[in-house]
Amino acid sequence: MSQHSDASFPDLSAAIKRRLIEHVCETIEEHAEELTRLDKAVGDGDHGINMSRGVRAISAETEQLVQLETPRILQRVGMILVMNIGGAAGPIFGTFFMTLAKDFRTARDQASLAQIFEAGVESVCARGKSRPGQKTVIDVLAPLSGLLLSGKPLSLAAFSEAASAAAEATIPLQAQRGRASFLGARSIGHLDPGARSAELMIKAVCSVLAKECK
């Protein structure tokens, strides 16, 4: 008899886990220069370099990671990001992944995933003492959480598009947290680099899942 009779999702195969890890890391690497350019406009110009260092540390552990259950992968990925990014993005993305890991075992449908995602968003708000509308990564994560919570049937493509729309929507906002907030109104008109990173990672995850889990 299985110990897991709670009808949770069966865990992903090692092959899919590998594709997810590889594609998220490759996507960030491919956009590292863009992220740094975005951060030069409103911050200290190291976001791409920092994110790249984070994903390289993840890549280096791919073989060990794919052997783990998904919640343990999320936990470990969060810790790797915290220990390697070396900027504000480390605690922000790290806290998000580590919070997803906590209850991920209960994921069985959109409603339970929505709860898990929402807890992740709340943990980022707490870590950054921030909320939606302040031109941060939260402006991508919070609308996606709202979509999941709405209960409307949601395709991976729609989720992916919503992430892009949310990132774009940071452009007219004035930054109120982080280094960009020092620019005041001059932060208006720029895409938030953290929001762009979140968008890129979410789109990478959706594109792999759309291909692999038909």
């Binding site: 900027g87 480390g90 605690p91 950054g128």
Partner: peptide, 8 residues
């Protein structure tokens, strides 16, 4: 900010 969050 990053120093504060990493200290946490």
């Amino acid at each position: 900010g990053g120093a504060e969050m990493n200290s946490e």
